[in-house]
Simulated assay, not measured.
Amino acid sequence: MRIDDFIHQFSLADAAAEAPVTAKRRAYEALHARRRAVDPAGMQVRNERIADVKVRRFQPAHCRTGVVVYLHGGGWNLGSVDSHHGITADLAERLRREVISVDYRLLPEASYAEALADCQAVVETTAPVAVIGDSAGGRLAIDVAHTGEWQGVLGLIYPVVGTPTLDTLGADAPLLSRADVLSLWQAAAPDVPAIDTERPPAMTIEALAVERDPLTLPLERTIGSWRQAGASVGYRCAPDMVHSALHGHAELPLMQIAWQDFCQAIEGRLDDGA
Score class of each variant (00 low, 15 high):
12 L>M: 15
14 D>V: 08
14 D>G: 14
17 A>L: 10
17 A>Q: 14
18 E>I: 04
19 A>R: 14
23 A>Y: 04
25 R>L: 00
34 R>Q: 00
35 R>H: 02
38 V>T: 07
40 P>F: 02
41 A>W: 01
43 M>S: 10
44 Q>W: 09
45 V>N: 07
49 R>S: 15
49 R>D: 13
56 R>Y: 03
58 F>C: 05
59 Q>K: 13
62 H>G: 05
64 R>D: 05
72 H>S: 01
73 G>P: 09
74 G>Q: 07
78 L>V: 12
79 G>H: 06
79 G>F: 00
81 V>P: 11
82 D>T: 08
83 S>V: 00
83 S>K: 07
83 S>M: 04
87 I>D: 00
89 A>M: 07
89 A>H: 11
93 E>V: 11
95 L>V: 12
97 R>I: 01
99 V>I: 07
99 V>L: 10
103 D>H: 01
104 Y>I: 12
105 R>S: 09
108 P>G: 02
114 E>S: 14
114 E>D: 11
115 A>C: 12
117 A>K: 12
118 D>I: 04
120 Q>G: 07
123 V>Q: 05
126 T>H: 11
126 T>F: 12
126 T>K: 10
129 V>S: 10
130 A>E: 00
133 G>D: 06
134 D>L: 03
141 A>D: 05
142 I>R: 07
145 A>Q: 12
148 G>R: 15
